[in-house]
């Protein structure tokens, strides 16, 4: 591909020998990521809409059902996720300051905090299921419609959010590998920043889920 040398030197000063499909545009990568985040917002946005509809129809039932949720555990998990967002941001800052080791440690901490969140979630769901509170269970069928819908939405929305946390952990593990391998470096870290954006979004969605399900009463 060296045949392309100098042909587009104006737009691409540093990487003029790269072929077109390898040229680098960090702004483009960031716009792309933001657009992707829009799609995620639409995805969850519609679920929030469904929640709003049923909550307005069955507000009393929602109130009762929400009393069953463990506020302490929910708050603890919020704390865990918020902390992980902080370590994420610090990891990027560390890399920009060329402290690769610190960046790796912070990234690892983010992943571990994500895992901690999932472990809590596991116990939380486990306890509910143990009490027979899961979709289509016999106990559930004895509850009023609004409470059934509350739990239906609870499992759907926190479940989808949990999937996003898992995906985020996978993504961050890949980023950690890239940092180790120097594929992500202080001078080219847009991928890490984009992964950070994703992680913050996952965090942000949780911030809405917490009041809607746990402290709605």
């Amino acid at each position: 591909m060296s045949t392309l040398v100098g042909t587009h030197s104006e737009d691409l000063p540093e990487h003029a020998h790269a072929p077109a499909h390898e040229h680098r545009d960090d702004t483009a990568a960031k716009i792309g990521m933001w657009l992707f985040l829009f799609t995620e917002l639409m995805l969850f946005g519609i679920l929030f809409l469904v929640y709003a509809v049923y909550r307005s129809i069955y507000s009393e039932d929602f109130h009762h059902a929400a009393l069953e949720l463990n506020v302490a555990l929910g708050s603890f998990n919020t704390f865990v996720l918020l902390t992980s967002s902080m370590t994420m941001a610090m990891s990027i800052a560390a890399l920009q300051k060329r402290d690769k080791n610190l960046s790796m440690v912070l990234l690892l901490a983010t992943i571990v905090l994500g895992a901690l969140f999932m472990v809590n979630k596991y116990f939380e769901w486990g306890a509910k299921i143990h009490h027979g509170l899961y979709p289509a269970s016999e106990h559930m069928r004895t509850l009023p419609h609004g409470e059934q819908l509350f739990y239906g939405l609870y499992y759907t929305m926190t479940g989808l959010h949990g999937l996003h946390v898992l995906a985020g952990m996978g993504l961050l593990s890949l980023m950690l590998y890239f940092v180790v391998r120097d594929k992500i470096r202080p001078d080219r870290h847009v991928m890490l920043e984009n992964s950070g954006l994703y992680w913050h979004l996952v965090d942000l969605i949780w911030i809405f889920l917490l009041p809607l399900f746990y402290v709605t009463t």
Partner: peptide
């Protein structure tokens, strides 16, 4: 902007068929 909306709608029907969430 619009496609995720149908995505989640279809996902909810699939979920409904699998585990009866009720929505």
């Amino acid at each position: 902007i619009a496609t995720p909306v149908v995505g989640i709608t279809l996902a909810l029907v699939m979920l409904e068929r699998a585990i009866d969430v009720g929505i």
